[in-house]
């Protein structure tokens, strides 16, 4: 079986937000909708170092859907719109979603967005790759690991090119994948592991 996952190296991430914008444009996300966001560990303001000058620390990483092995968002869906594919990808079926926000309430990672009257940046041109899951009014949207690209044998948009070479993506079920090897070799954090969601995004440290 194939089970997709991702690793983000917190010792290399410099917060350049390239992956945020790659996701934003490639997925043609409407105004104010972002599937991928930037975080500074332990800080209230982004890029705020933690500690007392000059003894400071600043750890950067990005957060999108964790495609959990035990996703909190799927079981709470009243209509069966939130599903998990066999490849581990969690997604929303737009024709079944009623926009009730149950999944948004349940997800501990704040990575789902209810699309409401989407506004786009361009009037007569559609950005994005045109095969992405569209953002539909009244439907919850989120990162799909760019499943449309994956099935075409390509990488998710956020993996196009990480300037710091801090992002890794691949098959967790393949012990020989670069991703599996990295996870085996490195210490890592899982976001809020204690809530039992079993995320598929590994934060190398």
């Amino acid at each position: 079986m194939t089970r997709y996952g991702m690793a983000i190296d917190k010792t290399k991430c410099i917060g350049c937000k390239t992956c945020l914008m790659a996701c934003k444009i490639s997925n043609n996300l409407p105004r104010d909708v972002w599937f991928n966001r930037y975080e500074t560990e332990g800080a209230e303001a982004e890029f705020a170092a933690v500690g007392t000058y000059p003894n400071l620390k600043m750890v950067s990483y990005t957060v999108a859907c964790q495609h959990c092995a035990n996703p909190a968002c799927v079981s709470v869906c009243p209509t069966g719109a939130s599903i998990q594919d066999e490849d581990g990808i969690v997604r929303v079926l737009e024709d079944k979603c009623i926009g009730c926000k149950s999944c948004i309430q349940a997800c501990p990672y704040d990575v789902r967005t209810l699309i409401e009257k989407p506004e786009y940046y361009t009037d007569d041109v559609q950005l994005g790759r045109h095969t992405e899951t569209p953002c539909t009014d009244g439907v919850v949207a989120k990162c799909t690991f760019c499943k449309d690209l994956i099935v075409q044998g390509k990488n998710p948009a956020c993996m196009d090119l990480c300037p710091a070479r801090a992002r890794f993506w691949g098959d967790l079920d393949d012990p020989d994948s670069e991703l599996s090897k990295l996870i085996a070799a490195r210490d890592y954090d899982l976001l809020m592991e204690e809530v039992g969601t079993e995320p598929s995004v590994f934060y190398l440290k």
Binding site: E39, T40, E41, A43, Y61, L191, M192
Partner: peptide, 8 residues
Amino acid sequence: LGGGAALV
């Protein structure tokens, strides 16, 4: 994991 804590 402060960011995570913020998410909590």
